[in-house]
Structure formats: C-alpha cells, structure tokens
Design a protein around this nucleic acid. Structure first.
Length: 661
RNA sequence: GCCAGAGUAGCUCAGGGGUAGAGCAGAGGACUCAUAAGCCUUUGGUCGCAGGUUCAAUUCCUGCCUCUGGCACCA
C-alpha cells in the first residue's frame, strides 16, 4: 500500500459563520481528494477549525460563555457545513482538542530544548480597550492614535521568539529547486522576491497568559501561551501524529498519545490548499518550523484566490455577499460545487455573479449535461424498451464521442490539480454527444426498420457516453454523478476512474427511469411569461414529463437563451411563437405559416416558403463582406508576398482555452 | 516608492514575427429524441499609446499611460 495522498485545507478561524471563501477552498480540496480516490489512491483529507486567540476569547466573553462552550457551538455549525458541501474529509481537527494541544506542546518542548527559542523584550503601543498592540498603520497623520482605540499606553512585554535568520538561504534554494512546491508560479515568484529582498526577522511566538489565556501554554513556561504559528499550523501534523504516523513518532519521541500504530506515514502532506492571504505563513514560517523539527516539507502549497461579487469586494457591512447555504438550498450543492470550480482556475481571483451562476446552471448543467442524459435515456426507453442493445460493428463511433485521448488527458488534469481544465474537457464530450445525436438522427432511424442495427449502435454509444461522463464527473458533482448511475439502472458507484473505460455497459442491461438531472428553472418560464400559447404548452409538457413538477417560486431569468423565440412571441400578430409548438407534432402544422415566422425577411412580396437570406433574392445580402472567404490554408504553400525563408504554417494553431494560467 | 504581472471582440480570456482565436452574449437557419432543450451558420477587433528593429510587429526592444498583485499588522 502506497503512502496515502494527504491533503488539507487551511483551518478556519472560528469567529463567525462560513462564507463563500471557506466553501470554495473546501470544495477545491474535496474535488482533488475525491479525484485521487477515484484514481485508486488512498487519501487522507483533513479540514478543521482554529479556535484559540484573542478574538474568540473576546467574543465568548461578549456572549457570556466559556470560550470552549462558544467554540463547541460554532464547531457544530462548521461541521454541518462540511456535510452540506458534501465533503469527504477523513477527520476534522479542532485546535482545542487534547490530541492537538499535546502535539503542540511536544513540538515546543523539543524546539526549546534544541535552542531555537529565546526570550526578548517587546516594546509597543497598546490599546487597553481593544486589547491589542497597535502598529504604525494605526496612527493618524498627526501621529496620534484614533480615539476608537481608547487609552493607548506604551507597554514593555517579554515574549519568546523563534530564530529565523539562519533559515533564509536554504529556503530560497529549496523553493528554487522545487517549482511544484508553491503553485501557481506567480505566487512562488512573490515568495522568492520577498525572501531575496528582505531579511527575515525572528518570529514572536507567545503572548503572556496574563493578557491572553485562551491558548496553549508553553510546556516550559506556563506564564505564556503560544501564539498562532505554533498553534494553527501544527494542525497539519497533530492529526497524523494522533493516528500514529511513524515519521512523526520518530521526530517527536516525547509525544505520548494514545496512538494507533499506523504503518503508513501521512506526513509529509501532498498538498496544503490555502488562500493567497496566508501564503507567507505557509511558505516561510511553516517550512522553517518543520525543518527545525527535523521533518520533511509538504509537497505543495496550492494557493487559490479570493472571490468578489459583481466586481466588488465581498463585505458583510455593505451587504455584498454570497450566502453559500442559500445558494445550495435553492440550486443544489452540485450546482454550487460546479460553478465555483468551473468559473476559474486555481490561482486568480474570481467574480461571483448571480447571472453567471444561472447561465452555467441552465446552459451547462441542465441543458448540456442533463438534457443529454434525458434525451439519450428517453430514446433507449422508447425505441428499445430501455434495454441496452448488443454491441455491433457500428459502435466504433463511440470512440469519436469519448476520444481515446480524453481519459488520460482528464486524468492528467486531475493529477495536476487543473480542475477547470478537466471540466472543460469533460464538457467537450457533452457537446460532442449532443452533436452526435444531431448528426446521426436516431429518431429518424427509428422509423426505418433496415436501420435497426445502426440505431442499436447509436443508442449504445449515447448511453455509454452518459455512463462515462458520470464517472468523470464524480469528483466534481458526486450527487449528480450518482443520479446518472441510478438512472442508468446501475447498482454500483461511479467513484472509480478506471470505470471510465469504454464499453463497460453490458448488452441486455435494463436502464432505470429518466428524470431531470438539473431542472432548468428558467428558460421555459421566461418564454411562458411572454406568450400564453407557449405557456400552455410548457405546462402540458412539464406535467407530462416530470411527475413532480416543482412549485414555481417566482423570479425570471433575464437572459433567455432563445431570443429568437422570445422576440417572436412578443410580436402579437406574428403567431410565430406557435411554430415550435406545432412542430412538436401535437397537432397539425399551421396551414399557412406566416413568412415572417420562418425568416428574417420582412419585405413585402417576398414569397412565403422561402427561408433564410440566401434563398430570398430580394433579401439576399448585397455586401461582399458577408461572404468574405475564409482562407485557412497554409500561406507557405502558395506564392508568397514576401521574400526570404518560408514562414511557418500558422493554420494549425490549437484553439485557446478560456483560462489564463 | 520598490518588485512582479496584465492591457486582444459587448463580456471572460487564449494566442503569438507572416490574413486575429475560443466560450458566452448578439443575428439567421434547419430539425423534433429531449428539460422550449440540442444542432448548423454567422456579425463584432488599428491586439492600451508613441517610437525603434525588420521585407513584414498585435507578437521583439524602448518609453509612456492605465489596471492588478506583492512588499511579513492581521485571520
């Protein structure tokens, strides 16, 4: 058994309720953890809470609670939140737990004995009201501190310091020698720039217990508690230590936990997923702490950006917020997970817009993936009684749907933590499958008995593609993925990446009932609002196909994807909006469809029946620009307007992705 | 101020010395298996500004303008 893939989130400071940023980091981590499990690796995924410190102590006092009680109550919310996000964390660490405090103290004792700490005086301006030292930034232009700080006194305080000065050069060398250690690259460059241009100052690691007692006491001097660094960061090793990690047991021989004796080390972590705001702590202090302990460094710091909403900073005070729980309640956790992972790659800041969310939900999840599943299963049900047909020679088409290269490329993206790229590739398959239906027209084959074998093949390819998609999507949207498997009538789980191999669906298998995977909430409502005729048809179809139509809760999408229909519906005398309704074959088609219903041509005398610009002589485009030829051939093959060596052919450029990395 | 990075279509972004690319948005069309979904076609750009190198610059160089990030107070 190989070493488990050990991945962590930062632990969140428990002084409030979880917000979008917390949710984002946890989801990224969970997708990576699930992906590794799916790929067959053992995984340990750790998240948790940072519960010590002044703000917690103060908040507890304000609520007239013991700090531990205060933390216990909030911790319940945070654990529930992890469940709501459908996280697969293997443990949940709280820094007030005994196992954590014991590890912290063992480390402090060891480093103190080895001479890494010293005591020194700290002199500064202290606000008694705010119970904090002030900095130069807190000064007003006239040199005085803001009255909101109350009385400010100059205070001298002894504290313990951690020596950093000797560690600068090896850390620079290490980061330069290990490009994967800090990702993305520009974050790595920031750390290197900082390390090369500044001299590290020793780190103050304590607070006097008289001033702050909600913390872990120094084992060698109970007059002090340790401050954030040797508390919060240590969570990454306190849980493995408690689980009996042999690497940690060797490094911390005095740590006597009631540990299971594990044979496998979790440490070093394979990835710490963190926000850009805490990069320095993880890229500078943490490696030095580990080096001092004699422990190896984590393999990677994966640094994500922050979210904005509507282009502005997320802020409780201005009300510019995204409430994850509300979004999940309305749209489902899979949609939420999908949006935050698909919207941006790991690194840059993101911008949440409600419209953007709705567009992705509607066009990508509901109309792209969900509708593909629905139409594929419906046809199999309708034409073959829901029984998967036997393989035939025609099925080689399936390789065009899920290209032989797709699976390894997606696997490579997952391993490289390029989650957005993986989703883009997966959606290429969705698009290809929808194109395939249009190209092969199985609904026409069904009317021609001689094409039965071909229809078998097309149906097989479609249903099998849906199955493969479920497997590929499991790390991202596990709920939807499992629903796809259920609709396919498969008993097992789509959680094994190797099941993405083509052809695992066996002939004779009977699928389950098709149902909407992601209900498109809007588009039909939007249309319905504009045309009573369409509204009636929508209601009829909805009630026929969906056994339990959800109640309409109000609100419309502004961006209806089919503006053509919308605009025509808005024209009171066109009747054009009827066209799609008639064409459903419900009733006979309109005897004389108005010309304007089918064409953009509105000139008098343009013969009915002509459709499209090209066929209408009076409306034909006169400008040459419309038919500007597109010559994509390689220039070097023809007569060249320039001299010199033949230039490289530029016609084979690969298309770009929408992501900058 | 210092150090990075970025300015390309309405939006989000790829690209890169030789006719400018994708997705979304916009426009037109054909179809009916499907969640009014899906499919096809298509309009948009002096590639921030000014110089320079070059037969040729959006691409390389220089300068300028604008924006973003970092520069250890803090999660």
């Amino acid at each position: 058994m190989s070493k488990p893939f050990y991945i962590t989130t930062a632990i969140d400071y428990v002084n409030g309720q979880p917000h979008l940023g917390h949710a984002y980091e946890k989801i990224l981590t969970d997708v990576i953890a699930r992906a590794r499990r799916s790929l067959g690796e053992p995984v340990f995924f750790l998240t948790g809470l940072d519960e010590h410190g002044q703000k917690v102590q103060q908040a507890a006092i304000r609520e007239n609670k013991a700090p531990q009680t205060y933390c216990d109550e909030l911790a319940a919310d945070w654990k529930a939140f992890a469940g709501t996000l459908n996280l697969t964390n293997d443990d949940f660490v709280r820094t007030t737990e005994l196992r954590h405090k014991q590890t912290v103290q063992a480390i402090l004792a060891k480093l103190h004995a080895a001479g890494h700490f010293y005591q020194s005086e700290y002199r500064g301006f202290y606000s008694q009201k705010e119970e904090t030292f002030l900095t130069e930034k807190d000064r007003q232009p006239d040199g005085k501190f803001d009255p909101s700080f109350g009385e400010v006194v100059e205070l001298v305080e002894n504290n313990y310091y951690f020596k950093l000065k000797d560690h600068q050069q090896w850390l620079i060398d290490y980061i330069e020698a290990n490009p994967e250690f800090i990702q993305p690259d520009y974050r790595r460059n920031e750390v290197l720039g900082f390390l090369k241009n500044n001299t590290l100052e020793d780190l103050c690691i304590t607070r006097p217990a008289a001033r702050l007692n909600w913390g872990i006491p120094l084992p060698f001097d109970p007059a002090y508690v340790t401050y954030v660094w040797f508390d919060a960061l240590v969570n990454y090793i306190s849980v493995p230590a408690a689980l009996g990690d042999p690497t940690l047991a060797t490094a911390l021989p005095d740590l006597k936990l009631e540990a299971q004796n594990s044979k496998q080390s979790l440490w070093p972590a394979d990835a710490h997923v963190i926000g850009k705001d805490i990069l320095k702590f993880h890229a500078v202090y943490w490696p030095i702490m580990l080096k001092a302990m004699g422990l190896p460094l984590p393999k990677q710091l994966l640094v994500h950006g922050w979210w904005q909403k509507d282009g502005a900073k997320i802020s409780k005070s201005t009300g510019n917020i995204v409430e994850p729980l509300e979004v999940i309640a309305e749209w489902g956790v899979d949609a939420f997970r999908y949006y935050v992972v698909r919207e941006l790659s790991i690194g840059p800041d993101g911008n949440w817009t409600d419209d953007g969310f709705k567009v992705r939900y509607d066009s990508e999840l509901a109309n792209g993936l969900g509708n593909l599943l629905n139409r594929s299963l419906s046809m199999l049900k309708k034409y073959r009684n829901g029984i998967v047909p036997a393989p035939s020679a025609f099925q080689k088409d399936g390789t065009a749907l899920v290209d032989v290269d797709d699976i390894p490329r997606i696997e490579a993206d997952l391993r490289a933590h390029q989650l957005q790229d993986a989703l883009v590739k997966i959606w290429n398959i969705v698009t290809r499958a929808n194109q395939y239906i249009q190209r092969t027209e199985p609904f026409k084959m069904a009317k021609v008995p001689e094409k039965a074998a071909e229809l078998d093949a097309v149906l097989y390819n479609l249903v099998e593609t849906c199955r493969v998609l479920a497997v590929l999507l499991w790390p991202f949207i596990p709920g939807a993925s499992e629903k796809i498997y259920a609709q396919l009538g498969l008993k097992d789980s789509p959680a094994k990446f190797s099941d993405a191999a083509w052809g695992k669906l066996s002939a004779g298998h009977t699928i389950g009932e098709p149902a909407a995977l992601f209900l498109a909430k809007i588009s039909c409502r939007s249309r319905a609002r504009r045309s009573p005729v369409v509204a009636a048809e929508v209601t009829r179809r909805t009630s026929r196909r969906i056994s339990n139509p959800p109640p309409y809760v109000g609100g419309y999408f502004d961006n209806c994807s089919s503006n053509r229909l919308r605009k025509k519906s808005a024209d009171p005398k066109a009747g054009a909006c009827l066209k799609p309704v008639y064409s459903r074959g419900v009733t006979s088609p309109p005897p004389t469809a108005p010309h304007s219903a089918a064409s953009s041509c509105r000139r008098d005398g343009c013969a009915p029946g002509r459709r499209g610009r090209a066929r209408c002589t009076r409306c034909a485009p006169s400008d040459a620009s419309r038919s500007r030829p597109r010559d994509t051939s390689c220039r070097s093959s023809g007569s060249s307007p320039w001299r010199g060596p033949a230039p490289a052919c530029r016609s084979s450029r690969t298309s770009g992705s929408t992501t900058r990395r």
